[in-house]
Design a protein around this nucleic acid. Sequence first.
DNA 1: GACCAGGCACATC
DNA 2: GATGTGCATGGT
Length: 214
Amino acid sequence: MLPSMNKLLEIYRRLYCAFGPQYWWPGEAPFEVAIGAVLTQNTNWGNVEKAIENLKREKALSAKRIHEMRTGRLASLIKPAGYFNIKAKRLKAFIDFLINEYNGSMERMKNEEMQTLRVKLLKIHGIGPETADSILLYALKKPVFVIDAYTKRVLSRHKIMGHEENYEKFQVLFHTALKKDIRLFNEYHALFVRLGKTHCKTKPICGGCPLEGI
DNA sequence: GACCAGGCACATC
DNA sequence: GATGTGCATGGT
């Protein structure tokens, strides 16, 4: 076993011991998770919740309703999540795809072969690797590891991989080192985010960090 | 008031 | 291919 494999397991163990299970994704239905995945791009989750609340209040949290809605109207509802004009277009693009390819059904989308689906998702305007993988893992329960800014920060600071390496390379590391376990991938990524919220924002290794000494 | 937050597309070189 | 920039709100 490579040293990096041991490190990844040790990091997970420490984070889980420190923070416990995170029970992601906070949105219940797969469709809501997918919408949240777009809205949370470079955005605090609290703001995303406000935007989703607006959609729920207007009974607009469905593929059909958002599909029928004007982009400007959608933008005004998701305003708290920031970048609202861009994200309105991105949500529209995702829902066009969902309706055209799967008749608006996340369940049908889930039946698609994973790699095929991932390639299709990445072709949608506004869906990059992290958003695609968040949808695959958290909405559709597919075993893919989600890489984000926190993941890169932690791994580069612990000299496991250079920060400049691309998304796929980080992902391959996790896919190679870990068992392809949905529950594990779910918690691990969520724990990285949990760590990033309170630790090591400015200093490479802060005091009281669960990862101290790795 | 500065800085940050669960990215991505696009322009420019 | 790499590097820089716009997008925008709300909490600390």
